[in-house]
């Protein structure tokens, strides 16, 4: 049994008549102790997926799923109380902007101890002791001092460490890290990733790493899910995806990495942006931006299909050499 098992997750915003589909038919499962990367541009539905499984999507957002279970428990059928007991204890999450994610009115100690108190209780003294240990575990210098600091007195990297400390306080089985390094200085980013990996190893927790940056996935994850416009477009093991991307979108993301452009005068980029509420195309959602698109791509939305060792949502997946599987693009032939 997977730790997390999601089938056909659907998240919509906006009015019922003209909804905006933020997550579309998403299947995802995470094994215990696994590191999985979720990658895609902004607007591809990565964060919404995480928030949906946490139950943090508010009205007017609407969440439905064929199945959404954590360690065998149905997440959709949880009562309010059961959900509160689970969040922060079994599933924890850290966010992109550490500077705004901590409450400016309370000290670090208060916010750490609050998590501990709500989920396990204990005397004030014990809780403070534990909070201090947590700060030490996330390598915060001068932790005794930092306990009584307010968030505005901490740097971004420090704040994110406090967020991590808060997240791991109750030994969660799944840690969701939503762009944990994006808002940090480049020099701190590597340390933060290192810390997350170390904690993941020590505690054997599963880590769901959401990022727009494939190179972060390459250093950390075992498996990757590529999302585009609310849909999974490709999943597979990290080495396989980096070596032989099957989906044109994955290929384009890889091609945009600086590592793949050494010696080039210009970085390759994917033109255009992820479609929003009003410009969702018919057919394959990527077709306006895909250089391989054909008439078939413009008319029929592809399903997620098994391609040897991967799941790919494309009519014409690329072959192992990164070449097209249809020789002449039909579109250009008929146009």
């Amino acid at each position: 049994m997977s730790l997390l098992d999601i089938e056909k997750l659907h998240v919509e915003f906006g009015s019922v008549e003209a909804p905006f589909t933020a997550v579309d038919d998403l299947d995802l499962n995470i094994e215990a102790g696994e590191i999985i990367g979720i990658v895609g541009e902004s607007g591809s539905g990565k964060s919404v997926t995480a928030l949906a499984l946490m139950g943090l999507i508010d009205f007017p957002g609407r969440v439905s799923a064929g199945r959404m279970a954590f360690a065998g428990r149905d997440l959709l059928g949880l009562t309010e109380r059961e959900r509160h007991a689970m969040l922060g204890r079994d599933i924890a999450m850290i966010f992109q902007d550490p500077m705004t994610s901590l409450n400016p009115c309370f000290t670090v100690a208060y916010q750490l101890m609050e998590t501990l108190r709500v989920h396990q209780g204990g005397s004030k003294r014990q809780l403070r002791e534990q909070a201090l240990t947590l700060l030490k575990q996330v390598d915060i210098p001068d932790p005794e001092h930092r306990l009584d600091a307010y968030p505005h007195q901490l740097s971004g990297g420090m704040s994110q460490r406090v967020m991590v400390a808060m997240a791991i306080a109750c030994n969660p089985r799944l840690l969701i890290a939503d762009e944990p390094t994006t808002a940090l200085d480049v020099t701190v980013q590597a340390q933060m990733l290192e810390l997350l990996l170390q904690l993941q190893r020590e505690r054997g927790m599963a880590l769901m790493l959401i990022t727009h940056d494939l190179s972060i996935i390459a250093q950390t994850a075992q498996r990757v899910v590529v999302m585009y416009a609310g849909q999974v477009v490709e999943t597979g093991s990290v080495p396989r995806i980096f070596k032989t991307p099957r989906h044109p979108y994955t290929q384009a993301l890889l091609a945009a990495l600086p590592e793949y452009n050494i010696g080039q005068s210009r970085l390759k980029t994917l033109p255009g942006v992820v479609p929003g509420q009003y410009d969702r195309p018919g057919g394959c959602l990527l077709n306006p931006r895909c250089s391989y698109a054909t008439d078939r791509c413009r008319e029929i939305r592809p399903a997620l299909s098994v391609e040897e060792d991967a799941l790919v949502r494309c009519h014409f997946p690329l072959d192992a050499a990164g070449r097209l599987t249809h020789c002449i693009p039909e579109g250009s032939a008929t146009a």
């Binding site: 509160h84 969040l87 902007d97 409450n103 609050e114 998590t115 709500v118 967020m163």
Partner: peptide, 17 residues
Amino acid sequence: REDYVRTARAKGLSRLR
């Protein structure tokens, strides 16, 4: 709308809290 309210909810605090 602030991020720290989302953090508080993600910690599993009750709605009232």
